[in-house]
């Protein structure tokens, strides 16, 4: 049987297909992602159809669909909606089963998820009220510095002395950045300063409750240098989740497999 996990996030729609045949451990059949569009439900269906087609399947072959992400309740073709917290935890567990803490930084929010020794979500903290500390803040800064998001990490690596970005508000932080540029501060120092500001904000959210191993996931985890800066800020080693942007969708697919299995039994 095939099951699907769809992470309909604020910045991208991510799809993971799993094959659950023969009672074996589910294996990834196909996956993909696309930037989000206003009609999340239709868009998610299109991405799912395309991924299915590329894998040589149709919607009829899909036994169970779990939707996650902020638009999860809009996907009426999904069998179940589960939050990103549970899905990310499950997705990370698949690759790194001993994980006890997860830091996820996505486009519009960031989360710290605590797992117990059995891998169950024990507790979580979220920032979804403030753009500073999220991926969209990095995008904003990249635009202001005239680079694309992928180049921002590379730019930051050239910094010898990261700039101090003190504002707690993304809008005021942008004003600060304009001031820093006008004052002749090197763009690489500003890029590094922004990474540091985000990392400190996450560290403040995490407090001292992190238990090792700590895993970094979500779209921002792909940004070069971010893992190192965050690791220093939280004062813990930080493992990177494989394909971090797809972790939520993978978790959703794994939970879909669980549901499909329990329904079949």
């Amino acid at each position: 049987m095939i099951v699907a996990g769809i992470d309909a996030g604020s910045r991208a729609v991510k799809v993971v297909l799993l094959s659950t045949d023969n009672g074996t451990e589910p294996g990834v059949l196909a996956s993909d992602l696309e930037d989000s569009s206003p009609d999340q439900a239709a868009h998610a269906q299109r991405v799912l159809d395309r991924v299915l087609q590329e894998a040589g399947h149709t919607m009829q072959d899909v036994g169970f669909v779990v939707a996650t992400g902020y638009a999860r309740h809009l996907l009426d073709f999904a069998d179940k909606a589960i939050t990103e917290i549970t899905c990310h935890a499950r997705g990370v567990q698949k690759h790194l089963p001993n994980t006890r803490s997860i830091i996820e930084i996505g486009g519009q929010d960031s989360k710290v998820i605590h797992l117990d020794a059995q891998g169950r979500v024990e507790d979580f903290t979220m920032n979804d009220r403030c753009a500073a500390g999220t991926g969209c803040f990095l995008e904003l800064v990249a635009r202001r510095l005239g680079v694309n998001l992928n180049e921002l990490g590379e730019l930051a690596e050239g910094s010898k002395q990261p700039a101090t970005i003190s504002s707690m508000c993304a809008v005021f932080a942008e004003t600060e950045i304009i001031g820093l540029l006008a004052g002749g501060q090197a763009p690489c120092d500003i890029a590094a300063g922004v990474q540091l500001a985000i990392a400190r904000r996450i560290a403040s959210m995490a407090g001292r409750r992190l238990t090792c191993p700590v895993v970094f996931t979500g779209g921002v985890a792909r940004t070069r240098g971010m893992r190192r800066v965050l690791s220093e800020a939280i004062d813990h080693p930080l493992a990177l989740s494989p394909e971090p942007q797809l972790t939520g969708a993978l978790g959703a697919a794994l939970l879909a497999a669980d549901h499909a299995r329990s329904t079949t039994i």
């Binding site: 707690m168 403040s204 959210m205 995490a206 407090g207 001292r208 409750r209």
Partner: peptide, 9 residues
């Protein structure tokens, strides 16, 4: 002066 885990807000 920030206490661990406590938001300054």
């Amino acid at each position: 002066a920030t206490r661990e885990g406590v938001s300054q807000d």
